[in-house]
């Protein structure tokens, strides 16, 4: 997927921001935090995982998602978000 396609989704950006903040979360909790339904959250998580930005671990029926720290893409996105958020705080 092209960069503009991956990052063109508001929900995907929110997912990334939540996971940078918390570290790791299960699908239901991510859905709750980004204000989306389970199905749509799962779909966005899959896209981000396919692009190497996220990874997950399964514990029984629980899937825990986190940023894929071994992927340069994930690190780059994390950098972008952190710089962006930091600058926003400074403006306020």
């Amino acid at each position: 997927m092209k960069l503009e396609d991956v990052l063109s989704s508001r929900l995907r950006i929110r997912i990334i921001k939540v996971l940078i903040q918390v570290g790791e979360l299960n699908v239901s909790e991510i859905a709750r935090r980004i204000n989306a339904n389970y199905k749509s959250t799962s779909m966005h998580l899959k896209i981000l995982e396919d692009e190497g930005v996220l990874q997950h671990k399964t514990y029984g029926r629980i899937r825990l998602y986190r940023l894929n720290q071994s992927s340069p893409r994930a690190r780059a996105v994390q950098n972008l978000v952190e710089i962006w958020e930091h600058a926003n705080k400074g403006e306020r």
């Binding site: 909790e29 514990y59 029926r61 629980i62």
Partner: peptide, 25 residues
């Protein structure tokens, strides 16, 4: 090991297996 682990959706028995899985990992 996983501070944000969900609090619902599994039994104590499953949680025991999860704990062992986490320790193995």
């Amino acid at each position: 090991f996983h501070p944000s682990f969900p609090k619902r959706g599994y039994s104590a028995e499953e949680l025991l297996q999860i704990l062992l899985q986490v320790l193995d990992e």
